[in-house]
Write a protein that binds this DNA or RNA. Structure first.
Lengths: 263, 263
DNA sequence: ATCACTCCTTGATGCAAATCAAACGATAAT
DNA sequence: ATTATCGTTTGATTTGCATCAAGGAGTGAT
């Protein structure tokens, strides 16, 4: 059984860990409108004609820059808009009063954040920029209005929300059933897959988050994350230097993630 | 600080663990149409006039009975419909090829299942009836068509999906950061809260799932679940006899769930 | 360059939960 | 009633990860 197929039949766990699994795009300069945005294929549904796209441009009210370390929104903030990430990298997290923090996701260009705010009209998590970022502000009222007009957009919005539900299901599997090295393997495979879909290398990446943030997402302590990295490195599966990671043996990672079915 | 408030400020974790936190309803006989359904307040948005409700009845195509142990849908099935639970109790779960299973949720009357299927047009989890059940089959095409007509319904659908995302965020916090007894306390508080919203006792319940299924949901082994039950029982917090549970000290449960802020 | 700070790595030890194991209780079948 | 089956409880032991601790590497400020 081929590895790709093996992983497909196996829950597509690391593939579900991200918000979007879109077509490859090539980086180039862009204009403000969605219709000219090079992230369009990541953010917007396919199948619109030029006229429709014009209308769709109305969905984005403004752009907003967020400096590294700053919050795009935080727990308790009134919900008004969804945000499409244009550049930069975010984490979303929730925390308890006694200081325990859970990272609920990492988001990159082309992905949508803010869905948590719809149900109560207030956000229930924090969205923190892990590097300087720019987002498209999409007032949710616009999204809903245009959704009623364009069934394709409506379906797209539903798919985005459903994808997030399915992703979180996969994270529950990770947290509930997998061991430390399996979790980290799934994490690395997921990250590189998403980066690859954005035109980056499949085997090389620079992490935008600390060991502690990875650990928070994966339900383990930073020391355990570090040890798992070192183990992979000792085994010749990856090369690590601080936040630079080079994957030397993708198949080995896939086997760690899913030892039974890949062989 | 009052306990209710304490928990509100503390992430509302166990409150987020369910799909719906609706108003109390009283059981009585019902007709087939949504407009006459006594679960209407759980399933449908408020604010519709009689005429609107008539149209809304079109959303439900049929009813379907599911016997205990049978699946409403399973991984890989084509997605066509959402399902509103009329009676009975479900679990949703995903599994790996090497046999590890993760329960992703337990659903009761008035809650909606099937959202996972939207993104790929195929379901990615199994929905198993834990007791004989009846569901309203809502073809998703109907849902989308009527959503474009009725902004209130559109918003309602969005809220249901957002609520599920927020619930899963809370489960991630449970799985990533909490200890066995905290998880079980949160689980019991969540279940009783949802049952109470359906007109049942706040302090007494009969579990519909096994220790193993609870454990799968909470990321622990059945023995650990059993031990946690016994511990609560020894401490006089609950009374357990197999699947019957009576909560003797809700405040103590809340303290276990959130030791820091409740005192 | 030096210092301060943050992040990361590695080692030693402790512990919560998993695993292994056995017995018990409830339910259904014969 | 008797047996079989399944779910649950409880005890003994193991183990994977957390915790505690110390030092190293990278980065920015002065």
């Amino acid at each position: 059984m081929g590895l790709a197929l093996c992983l497909l039949s196996h829950l597509k766990l690391y593939q579900n860990m991200n918000l979007a699994t879109p077509p490859v795009i090539t980086p180039e300069s862009v204009k403000v409108a969605c219709s000219n945005c090079n992230l369009r294929e990541l953010c917007m549904p396919a199948g619109f004609n030029a006229n429709d796209m014009k209308k769709l441009d109305e969905i984005v009210a403004t752009r907003r820059r967020v400096k590294q370390g700053d919050m795009l929104f935080s727990n308790g903030d009134a919900f008004t808009s969804l945000y499409a990430i244009r550049t930069g990298f975010f984490k979303t997290c929730i925390s308890t009063e006694d200081g325990r923090e859970q990272v609920t996701g990492f988001q990159m260009a082309g992905e949508i954040i803010g869905l948590d705010g719809i149900v109560t009209d207030h956000h229930s998590c924090n969205a923190v920029a892990l590097e300087d970022a720019e987002v498209c502000v999409m007032p949710f009222a616009n999204v809903e209005d245009l959704s009623r007009e364009f069934p394709l957009l409506q379906r797209h919005v539903h798919k985005i929300m459903s994808r997030e539900i399915v992703r979180e299901n996969s994270v529950m599997m990770l947290l509930g059933n997998m061991r430390a090295e399996e979790r980290l393997a799934a994490f690395l495979l997921n990250l590189t897959q998403r980066l690859h879909a954005r035109g980056f290398s499949q085997t090389e990446l620079t992490l935008r988050m600390s060991r502690e943030e990875i650990g928070s997402y994966l339900g383990m302590k930073l020391e355990t994350v570090s040890r798992a990295f070192s183990k992979f490195s000792d085994d010749g599966i990856i090369e690590v230097k601080q936040r630079y990671v080079r994957i030397l043996n993708t198949d080995a990672l896939k086997k760690i993630f899913n030892p039974e079915t890949c062989n």
